[in-house]
Simulated scan of single mutants.
Amino acid sequence: MGSSDGRTGDRAAADGVLDVPVIDISGWENGTGAARAALATEVDRAARTVGFLQVRGHGIPEDAAGAFADALDAFFALPMAEKRRLRAPSPDINRGYTPPRTEKLSLSLGVPAAAEDLFEAFNVGAEASSFPGLDLPEAHYPANIWPSLPGFRPAVDEWCRRAGGLARRMTGIFAHALGLPEGHFAPFTDHSLDVLRMNHYPLPDRELTLDRDRMGMGAHTDYGIVTVLWADRVPGLQILDGDGGWHDVLPEPGCLLVNLGDLLARWTNDRWRSTMHRVLPPTDERGRVVRRRSAAYFHDGNWDAEISCLPGCVPPGTAPRYPPTTVGRHLAEKLAGSRAGRRNENSPREAARLRAARSERPLPGTAGDGVNSGPSHVS
């Protein structure tokens, strides 16, 4: 696999499930120089070939994950009317509750979808008040909207602290893998626009046949630097290879999925690719819809940080593939597509990858066959 084609390389797909490399990072902090170099080489290979990796030895205890999962369950079990009261006043505000069928993630790439995505979500993120003295703009750092649900906020805050710590540790490993000082990315992330999105693919309250273009979550790349993903071991998540084929991904027990975002692809001139992924309506082996939960912690960088290609990633005599941009501008363009329905015209390379993807669907009885599935509580 070339360093910029985004293919899955020699990673085998058994029964359609991609072999996403499992990397133990427990020895990073206190490891020898040789051990750290070997770990960074593993990460670089995964970033070049798949764009996803499974992290083991992340140090997040099971009880923190369990408390967080319980909080997520309690929130999504609330009546729809109560959840809807927690919607942001404008879709441009990336906070609060998102009901089913109100977003089209593919519009973040400028590619229209046949129908709205089926997932529901709840977002919290970095607030301006968290960085006193910096006078950060509320438009980029809006206040969170919290439900009156006992135990919810402490569990979510704890998960944000844990996932955010892992994301920052990964940027240190990334820097080492790219031949940079370990703290290279710190000035770009000291008031990072981090967001936690809790996703729920609910069971149907009635039998419903979906059209074949219906998505649990439409195809997209993640917008920022790195994503830490907690997810049920339920089929649905798929990633796109460089030949236009989709592959299922299931997290290994005890692992967290980590994937690269657009800004890291821009920094590395596509040496590391922001991998296209989607979520099919989750179903079991008999094609019956099943419930699925996930939570993506997006480590996106400072709103005012300028992202331009790292000099070592531009071959001599060539120009960078991406013009410089700021984190705030890039995120606003992406969110205007997915949340506000305004097609993003500034992702031509990603849009071309999606349009070139093969449109085949899984065989009947596998994830996303599109039968007998649909969201609950749809008004």
Rank of each mutant, 00 (worst) to 15 (best):
P375M: 00
R293G: 10
N199W: 01
G370W: 06
R321C: 08
E120D: 02
G164I: 12
G172A: 11
D5Q: 14
Y141H: 11
D262N: 11
D19P: 14
G16E: 05
R85V: 03
V314C: 10
E62L: 09
D248F: 09
L86D: 03
L256N: 11
E350N: 13
L310E: 10
A219E: 02
R293V: 03
D232L: 07
R293Y: 00
A175R: 15
P281K: 01
V327T: 12
P282A: 04
T366S: 15
A332G: 06
T275G: 11
A163Q: 07
C313R: 05
H184V: 09
A295T: 08
R168E: 12
T49F: 12
H184N: 12
G368L: 06
P364W: 13
R273E: 07
A74Q: 00
T325A: 09
P348M: 08
P112I: 01
L18N: 11
A319N: 07
S108V: 12
L237W: 10
V226I: 15
H58S: 10
L208T: 03
R48Q: 12
V378W: 00
V55K: 12
P142F: 02
P79E: 00
G224H: 14
P253M: 13
A14H: 13
R84Q: 02
E360F: 15
A64H: 00
N30I: 03
A319I: 06
L78C: 04
A74H: 05
H58V: 06
I93H: 02
Y141L: 11
M80V: 02
R162G: 06
V290I: 12
S308M: 05
A65R: 04
